[in-house]
């Protein structure tokens, strides 16, 4: 019996150290869970396979539950590369000196947030900011989202001259763009802010009833999602590794892979591209 327990303990130690040794070598990336979370692994494991082939090192994807968790994992060096939203990326790069935005999606250079409203509000699509939303119920997406929180809050403060909590009868955080749509569609909230890519996807999937919910305003474009990489990857995986990662990401042209994001393609990016996001976040005190 004693022997049995000793063997088990031994094999436990061996297996744990084996697993961590394997992890130490793997290059790990994650992505903010902004939509279609049920298929995060399916979507991004394909990307891991592609990167493994291109980079010649073992690349793993780990799923995370929130924007903050993605940033934390990046900061703790548990992931080395991440597909961040604009705000999450800015936060991550502030927390990890030397980290860099290297690649962004083609569409991310001019990303847009839709303000959507339930039909009963009587709000109609307009070019100018819909001041008629004041005093109604409003839902953001995730608290850490650029398109679901940061930019809409910025425009609300700018046009209504008030914090959202004051400007609306009630403010919620649905946690996710798909759910924002569901909540406004059911009339649980009168108005909401949603990422334009997710709106298009949900529309295509037939989840949206245009008789009940519609877009009433589109924000001006702003920079959003990007790949951010830690500054110390070259010391771990060899000189020029960062450049190779950048190349591999830019070379991703397979439509099946691109559909995971979903983007038409990738283009180079740099930290300064996201200065507007940082300024907005500072101006509405989301970043100290």
């Amino acid at each position: 019996m004693g022997n049995f327990i000793r063997n088990i303990a031994l094999s436990a130690i061996v297996s744990v150290s084996f697993v961590s040794a394997a992890l130490a070598q793997a290059f790990v990336f994650t992505a903010v869970p902004d939509e279609d979370e049920m298929r995060l692994r399916q979507r991004f494991d394909k990307v891991a396979v592609y990167l493994t082939r291109e980079l010649g090192v073992k690349v793993r994807y780990i799923p995370v539950k929130s924007y903050a968790a993605a940033v934390t994992a990046f900061r703790n060096n548990h992931v080395h590369l991440a597909w961040f939203g604009g705000l999450a990326g800015v936060r991550a790069r502030l927390l990890v000196p030397g980290s860099e935005a290297i690649v962004q999606g083609y569409e991310d250079r001019f990303f847009i947030t839709y303000f959507i409203a339930h039909a009963s509000t009587g709000l109609r699509p307009a070019d100018g900011f819909p001041a008629g939303i004041a005093g109604r119920t409003f839902t953001f997406g995730s608290k850490g989202s650029t398109s679901g929180r940061l930019m809409p809050e910025f425009y609300i403060r700018k046009h209504l001259k008030q914090a959202p909590a004051k400007a609306f009868a009630r403010v919620g955080f649905s946690g996710d763009h798909s759910r924002t749509i569901a909540l406004v569609q059911s009339g649980a909230y009168a108005v909401g802010a949603v990422n334009f890519k997710v709106w298009a996807n949900e529309m295509k999937a037939g989840h949206i009833d245009p008789a009940k919910v519609s877009v009433i305003w589109k924000t001006p474009p702003y920079p959003d999602y990007q790949w951010t990489i830690r500054g110390d990857v070259d010391t771990v995986w060899g000189r020029g590794f960062k450049a190779r990662v950048t190349r591999a990401l830019l070379d991703m042209t397979d439509t099946d892979l691109l559909a995971s994001f979903p983007r038409k393609g990738f283009v180079p990016a740099k930290n300064s591209d996201y200065k507007p996001i940082l300024d907005v976040a500072r101006s509405i005190k989301l970043i100290d």
Partner: peptide, 18 residues
């Protein structure tokens, strides 16, 4: 709900996505 790989992870995701 906060990211550990238990049933809640998938439950919350599935729920969020409808």
């Amino acid at each position: 709900f906060v990211g550990l790989p238990t049933l809640g992870f998938y439950l919350e995701s599935a729920f969020k996505q409808g």
